[in-house]
Design a protein around this nucleic acid. Structure first.
Lengths: 292, 292
DNA sequence: CTTTTGTCTTTTATCTACAATAGACAGTTC
DNA sequence: GAACTGTCTATTGTAGATAAAAGACAAAAG
């Protein structure tokens, strides 16, 4: 196995969705840009579609013959990219499992456990090291620094600096900037979820990420925007394995977000700073509580 | 060539320095910790020392037979680790050579040019991507974002936030903290270089890095300290290939540093902030000027 | 003459192999 | 009996190979 064909399989599955809606597929380049893959992959997809009798394909004619069945799809396990698999598997080990700070991380062992080559694991660890949770000893192992209260404090300290500055920059965006429309859309979603919070509180996580990323982007600073990756991944995985009081926690955050959004819309710097600080403070407290 | 033995060669060269100072070498574990390598490497070094007649080695007896000659050393090109070579070579291309923003970076081509395998180049690019100068298109090439004025502005914006905060934290370090002694040593060096700035201005670069890193470390925040890597590498390489007005520029920075250091020693927050801002402002201006 | 397709080349993602290096354990020496 | 050495094993760093995916170019179709 040199390279997994997950790009092909994932694009194929998404292509089945397109087939359900039309009876003729567009040109190869058009399909490629709709699916976000190259023509090479598009042609592989078309070949397979023809092979399993879903379409009749001859040059420009791509006629849909029948509705796709669930059995036509590739199973989801096969469509995840290798780095996603490694990431999930690694994060579960260090956030969920009993991973002590100072523990050694062994590339070979990790690779064996995940069932992959060492190169991919190694590249993942290098990429992941910027999150400050692991550290390399050259010519030797990696050391797990651990998801500790210190880590959370250092993370939130920088986050607060960056977000306060970004929020201030947001207020100064020209009124025709698309971010304002996005902000309004996000506000509406907040209100909808809040109205039925009992059932929909799980949608908060994704919305949270979208909202804060929008704010950070207003800084127009790649370092600030990139840093948000770290926050996002930490919150994403941490709360995925730590669901105590999730409903209550999310309801509160939703309300804080709304106040924060309204402050942004008011363009009043003092009000923005106050609302931003209030939310960041409670986010920090929640994170710290859940670590101990 | 599976792995270059640069660790061995570099440690061997450093060991020649030890040999000049004694007539008997210590035990293997002791040597290992002095050279920062494992016993395996120490034994390889001892074997080679014996082979070229520098020592007589028998179990615990390691008697120096003669003074090392320059020809005993391995040439410096062979002692640099592969990642250093790749880094230098890459930085020269993008900072010195005409590298346009938006240019594609090709792993294979880079590897061929440097004369190394693709794996090492790839790992370098992944590590390097956190500096915000390149970006990956999955399943496709890397894109050079370029060492542009925008980059410099984004970099210095974050730097200023971090350094102001670190400087404030520095003033609050307890008086018995070793950082104060280090600061005084750095101040002394500043005065010495400044007294003979015509001849010694080239020593500034290294001192600059040491000083700012010391300040950043006072933040006790891994993200702030890690970020200083980016600043250091940018300044390091940029000034290495851009020496216009180096003497004058360094003399000015030395004086600003001294004012900044004295402010830190005064523990007066307002004075610290003022001195820090003044220096950061001129550092930013110098960087920006040299880009255009 | 613009867009699409057929064909071919190049590049990336990943695996495997192997030398360099680290590290463990038992026997040896002081 | 503490530290050192001899020997062995495990892991990392790097090269090289290969399938997947991207992309280039000319011929074909509208």
């Amino acid at each position: 196995m040199a390279k997994q064909n997950t790009v092909f399989k994932d694009a194929f599955n998404r292509c089945l969705g397109l087939i359900e809606q039309t009876d003729r597929l567009p040109s190869e380049p058009e399909l490629g840009s709709q699916l976000g893959v190259s023509r090479t992959t598009v042609r592989a997809i078309l070949a397979r579609l023809q092979e399993i009798g879903l379409i009749e394909w001859s040059k420009r004619r791509k006629v849909v013959l029948r509705t796709p069945a669930p059995s036509d799809r590739f199973p989801t396990e096969e469509t995840d990219s290798l780095s996603d698999i490694i990431e999930r598997s690694f994060m579960r080990r260090i956030l969920a499992g009993g991973a002590e700070p100072g523990m050694q991380i062994n590339e070979l062992e990790l690779a064996r456990e995940i069932g992959t080559g060492t190169t991919s694991v190694r590249e993942f660890l290098i990429r992941f090291s910027r999150f400050g949770l692991i550290e390399k000893r050259p010519n030797s192992h990696w050391v797990l620094k651990g998801f500790t209260p210190e880590f959370a404090l250092e993370l939130t300290e920088v986050r607060e600096m960056f977000e306060l500055r970004s929020a201030a920059a947001f207020a100064n965006l020209p009124s025709e900037h698309p971010a304002w429309a996005e902000l309004e859309a996000i506000a509406t979603l907040h209100r909808e979820i809040l109205a039925d919070v009992e059932n929909r509180y799980r949608e908060f996580s994704e919305l949270d990420e979208k909202f804060h990323l929008l704010v950070h982007k207003a800084s127009k600073n790649r370092f600030i925007v990139d840093f948000y990756d770290i926050i996002a991944i930490v919150f994403h995985y941490h709360y995925q394995w730590n669901k105590t009081n999730a409903r209550q926690r999310n309801a509160r955050a939703l309300e804080e977000h709304l106040a924060y959004i309204e402050a942004l819309q008011s363009h009043d710097p003092a009000r923005i700073e106050a609302a931003c600080r209030r939310h960041l403070k409670s986010a920090r407290e929640t994170l710290l509580q859940s670590i101990n």
